[in-house]
Structures are given as structure tokens and as C-alpha cells.
Write a protein that binds this DNA or RNA. Structure first.
Lengths: 226, 226
DNA sequence: AGAATAGTGTCTGTGAGACAGTATGGT
DNA sequence: ACCATACTGTCTCACAGACACTATTCT
């Protein structure tokens, strides 16, 4: 039986002050965790950083519990700093996993994240090629799937939006990163023409390699003209 | 100072049992809320359902606190059932708002959702055209923005993926919904040709209107052939 | 000179955008 | 007969895909 508009407003959480405080203290609260798929490209392959459970030998993603007064992004940064020595990432939220029984220890919500890092940042994690990262603990297989999907969408239009490459790079290096993320060969000429509009050409060229020296490019600032 | 792989595994949350339970009880836990942008199309306009705070007169989205043993989607359904008499929605997660000071009442995480409903379901909420839904409480302006962005992305490729229309509809009715969501006029012929491949033609036609009777279409099941 | 890699010219097919036309009902 | 609306033919433009060709360096 639906309520009238007046009844709705009086029964909502934001009505009188007493009711508000009641709502915040009366209900049990879940633990909130963050779990992060740390992705990188190494040796032309898309890889994810894993931890190993010493009791079971199973693999899982790095994660931690959210501390008071902390944002989710800060919790992700703290977990990666403490467990993998990784600094300076910009985590992206993917999804909240909320099945009440997903963690045998109790009621835990997990906010899945994606973090993209340079390959040398994965020293302290096991870098597993994404197709091989199967049978992870919890719902971490699904998180890896979502992270890859998101990364592919981001890399479909723009050149290296996550900054995996250094400031200057050749078109072939850029294409190599995009091929690793996409999982397929990309047509060199079509890729070049599509990306050129989004890149700024430098007056430098790559030296020391065989063949015609490749022009070095920089990523173009967002909405940079010409 | 980074840890070795062995140290990482021993210090992680999933090592010995005693440590695990400690993690779940020792830290303060946030309240978790859900807030939902209820979108619909009415009179050719994209509208969002709002509640009014009786003290301040400000508008906000319907929401509630997550109860124990409940999923986020169930919390959204409960809040919409109790506050708006809306049944049978399929909420979509958008984003977790986590600023520690976003709610003056305390530490509250809010998981923003999108729910799409038929226009007649909005009786008990104020249906505000999206451009007019400004200066909402909390970060609800941002939630509406995310919800609209998501809905537009969903409607860019597929015919009425959220099922705003009844089972049978004309191409003009379909285009009307897409125009309301997109916010722009769409070329009738181009729209028709793009959508035809995703629709199944029925052998019925609309009767009673002036002009040539329009063919009635149905949405095609996912990956339905021919 | 020859190998190797970078970069371009160009053809083809596809699909959006646009406009004008044809089809088919109601009044 | 006329109008209103549904639907289609067709031209143009832009761009992906593909292939072959040219350009420039190192050995």
C-alpha cells in the first residue's frame, strides 16, 4: 500500500534529528574492503599482479579493509604500498561485490578497483598473464574480468590513456601496448592514422635501431588544439 | 620499505585464523547507504524521481541504509517499494561516494544506483525533468549526472534496453524514447535503419491514427538470429 | 647494395547524414 | 481528392580495412 507524499517525507531518514542518529547507530554495519586488479603490460602481454595465500597456495588480488576516515582510493594506495611497494597509482572503481556470504569470515562488502602500473612496479607481486589468472580466491576472477574489460574500453579510442609508456614513444611501441591490451594484432597503418590526431609529434627520432628511424610522439593534452 | 614475497603473504589478512577474525572486529565500520536515481521518460522528457525534505524543502534522491544480510540491489528495491510504491526494478550500480565528511551525521558510504521505470510508476515521487534537477542534497546532482550518462550509453546502440516501452511499439514511439534520453532530435530514416537489425517485425500494425499505419515491432532476444 | 623498419597513396566496402521521393491509411 | 504519416531510394561524405608502394636509416 503506497504512502502519500507527506507520509513519505515524514518517514524518510532525513526527517527529525532524533530519527537520523538512530539510523546511524542501530543497524549492524558491514566491513568494507577494497580489492585491486593491478594490471600492466610486460613482454607484450597483459598481466595482473597476484599474491599467494601461504596456507592454501591459492592466488588472490591484493586488498585491505577500509580504515576510518579513509577514502577507498586511499585504502587501495595503502594496500599497494604496504603489500607491493607500489606508489602513485590512480585507482578506478569497478564494482561493489555484496553477496552476504561471499567471505566466510563475516559480512564484508568488497569494492573492486583497477590500477594500472608500469611493469617494473610488479616486482613484489606475481605477474600472471591474464588468461592464466584463473581460479583465484573469492570473486577475484570476476574482478580481473571487469578490470580487463574497462582497460580495453579505455584503450579503444585514446593513445595510452593510463600512461604505461614514458613521455616519448614511437608509434610501434604505442601499438605494441594497445595490441597487448586488446589481445589482437592491430593493422599498423589504420592504427597510425587513428592515433595521429590524438598525438603530438616531436622533432626527435629514435636512434640506434635498424631501419628508418621512427618519429617520437607525446600524448596530446586533453582538448589540445591542432 | 617493500616487503619480500614471504613477508607479504604472512602479513596479509588471509594468513592464520586468529588474525582474520581480528581484522573483522577491530576496525570501525562505515554505515553503507544506497541512493537511487529513478529515471523515466514522460511527455518526451527524461525525468528523475525526487523526494522533498520537509524541513529544508530541498530535494534529494530516494535512499536507505543497507540492512544486515541484504544485497545492495535488495536495499534499493526496499527503499523504492517503501518510499515510492515502485516494484520490480533492476538497479544498476554506478559509483561509491566515499568522502568521509559527505554526510554530517557520520561516516557513511553511499552506493549510487540507477533504476529505470515506466512513467506511471513515479506517482509518489516528484518527476523533475533532468535539466531542472539541480541543487539536490548531498552529492545527488552528481549521481543524476552519472545515471544519465549511463542511460545514454545504454540507449546509444540498442533499442530500449531498459524496457520503457510495452512489448509492441512503433518505430516512432521507439525513436521518441531515444530522443528523450539522448536529448536531441534523431534522424528518422537513419535511426530506423540502425534499429531494424535489432528488432523483430510483427505482422500487426497500429490502427486508428491518421496516415499510413505503422508496423509494430518487438525487441529481439539477445543474439537472436535473422 | 641490401635488409629492415617507418610511413604514405589509394582502392574498397560500410555506414551515417541528408533529402526527396513513394506507399498507404484516414477524413 | 487530399492530408498525414510511414517507409525507401539514393547521393555524399567519412573512415576502417587492406595492400602495395615509397622513404630512410643501419650493416
Amino acid at each position: 500500500m503506497p504512502l502519500t507524499l507527506a507520509q513519505i517525507c515524514l518517514n524518510g531518514e532525513v526527517a527529525p534529528n532524533a530519527r537520523k542518529r538512530k539510523q546511524l547507530t542501530d543497524y549492524p554495519r558491514p566491513s568494507v574492503a577494497v580489492d585491486t586488479a593491478v594490471l600492466t603490460v610486460a613482454d607484450g602481454q597483459l598481466c595482473v599482479g597476484l599474491l599467494t595465500d601461504p596456507r592454501t597456495g591459492n592466488h588472490r588480488l591484493p586488498g585491505t579493509f577500509l580504515h576510518e576516515g579513509e577514502t577507498l582510493a586511499d585504502a587501495v594506495r595503502r594496500s599497494l604500498r604496504e603489500k607491493a611497494g607500489i606508489e602513485g597509482v590512480e585507482p578506478v572503481q569497478l564494482h561493489v561485490f555484496d553477496a552476504p556470504d561471499r567471505d566466510g569470515r563475516g559480512w564484508v562488502l568488497s569494492v573492486a578497483h583497477l590500477a594500472v602500473v608500469r611493469p617494473d612496479a610488479l616486482e613484489l607481486l606475481t605477474a600472471a598473464p591474464v588468461p592464466a589468472a584463473r581460479d583465484l580466491d573469492f570473486d577475484h576472477d570476476v574482478i580481473v574480468g571487469l578490470a580487463v574489460e574497462r582497460l580495453r574500453a579505455d584503450y579503444a579510442e585514446l593513445p595510452d590513456p593510463a600512461g604505461l609508456l614514458p613521455e616519448h614513444f614511437t608509434m610501434t611501441e604505442l601499438r605494441g601496448v594497445h595490441e597487448a591490451i586488446d589481445g589482437n594484432r592491430l593493422q599498423p597503418d589504420t592504427f597510425r592514422r587513428r592515433m595521429l590526431a590524438r598525438l603530438r609529434e616531436t622533432d626527435e627520432a629514435q636512434r640506434g635501431a635498424v631501419g628508418k628511424p621512427a618519429t617520437l610522439f607525446r600524448r596530446r593534452a586533453v582538448h589540445e588544439d591542432h
